[in-house]
Structure formats: C-alpha cells, structure tokens
C-alpha cells in the first residue's frame, strides 16, 4: 500500500494541498480526479518521493518515508514510478529514445537488455529508438516514457494526466499496456485525470476506488 496521510504542501505563501489523504492499493487502479490547479500533480510528486511535503506522512508498503529525492534510498524511490503529463518536458532533449528508455538500467547498474523488449512491446521500432525527442511525435515520446517508467518494475505507477495530449488510439494502447503490467505484476496504479469517461473505463475492470479532490 502506498499511503499518504494529511499531506500539506505550500509553495511560498500559496498553500496547494491541505491535509490530503490518499491510498493506492497494489493490484488495482485507483482513480484521482479534480479540477485543474487543485493539487493533483503536486500530490503525485509527493507520492513519487520527488517533493517533500510541509506536513503529513507517506508510507510505502508500510515503511514510512523520511527522506526525499536523492536522499531517499534508491530502492524506495524506484518502487514508485511517475509518468508525466508532457513527455516533451520529461525527457532530456539530448538523448535518443533508446538512451531514455535504458537510463534507469544504467543508473542502477543493471544490464539494459530488457529495455529493447519493453520498447518493442510499446510499439517503438528500432528505427524510432535512435531518434531524439524532437524527431518523434508526442505519442511516440510518451511510449518511451512508459517504457522508462516500467523499466525497474515498480510496485506503484502514478500516471499524471498521462494521455491528455495524445490521440485516442495511442491512449488506448498505453492504457492497455499498463493494465497488462498491472495484471502481470500486481502493481498498484494511480490514474490521475479530469476525463470522467476515461476514469470510469480505466478503474472499472479492477474495481478500484476513485478519489475526488476539490
């Protein structure tokens, strides 16, 4: 269980989150909905151990998180993967798609062989993998980001408006891929979106709850 209790975050004097609670159970898709600017993305960054909240506690599979970003242990922070809304901003523009997808393997000192398989699974041909981000479409780039997120086989995957910018077929394909990953590994998925229809369609098969923020 990835559990956040009473998370409060403020940027300067602007308070974005006030005592937010959320639990992401393994094996199901938990929905998170809410209007723009209500703090969904901020909560996602807290859950991925990328942002230290001003108050509240976060536990990953029962272990309370005390350190964030680099200071968090590698094991803990790679257990939660985050897929960003805008793939363009989420990749280093200087790297090729292959380097982007294989980066987690290199960073953790594992052999990068599964990267090619993952990319293949996501419909990325080897011809695409040698291109740089500016040479591919948003959809293709987001596929590479999903491959990168799944590389270290995380226990929890947080999808922050992952498919907002993409066409319907790419959207369906990526969600199907994540669902297959969930069924295969029993990972917990947090689907953040303000698209009600998508939310229903995504959370229903696993019977996961939907949390609404305001």
């Amino acid at each position: 269980m990835l559990r956040a209790d009473g998370i409060t975050v403020a940027y300067g004097r602007q308070r974005v989150l006030r005592g937010a609670d959320l639990a992401v159970a393994p094996g199901v898709v938990t929905g998170l909905a809410g209007p723009s600017g209500c703090g969904k993305s901020t909560l996602a960054r807290v859950l991925a151990l990328l942002l230290r909240p001003d108050a509240g506690r976060l536990t990953v599979d029962g272990a309370e998180v005390h350190r964030w970003r680099h200071r968090a242990s590698r094991d803990l922070r790679t257990r939660v993967a985050l897929i960003f809304q805008q793939p363009r901003l989420a990749v280093d523009p200087r790297l090729t798609l292959r380097e982007i997808a294989a980066e987690p393997f290199h960073a953790t000192g594992r052999p990068p062989d599964p990267a090619a398989e993952l990319a293949d699974d996501l419909g990325l041909t080897s011809e695409l993998m040698v291109r740089r981000p500016h040479e591919v479409s948003d959809g293709q780039l987001q596929r590479a980001c999903v491959a990168r997120a799944l590389a270290l086989r995380p226990r929890y995957v947080i999808c922050d408006e992952m498919t907002t910018m993409l066409d319907a077929s790419t959207q369906a394909h990526l969600i199907a891929r994540l669902e297959a990953y969930r069924r295969e590994t029993g990972a917990g998925i947090l689907a953040i979106t303000h698209d009600e229809e998508l939310l229903t369609r995504w959370t229903e098969p696993s019977g996961g709850p939907t949390v609404r923020m305001s």
Binding site: H70, F84, E103
Partner: peptide, 20 residues
C-alpha cells in the same frame, strides 16, 4: 525541469545527473 525528476525517480544519483 521534469526530466531531472524523472531521472531521480529512475534511480539516478546526484553525480550521475550532473554527468548525464
């Protein structure tokens, strides 16, 4: 920039982020 967040989340340490 978000790609640094992604690198941290992907297990990169400080030195690797500096270098890469």
């Amino acid at each position: 920039r978000p790609f640094v967040d992604a690198a941290v989340s992907g297990g990169s340490g400080r030195l690797r982020i500096v270098r890469r």
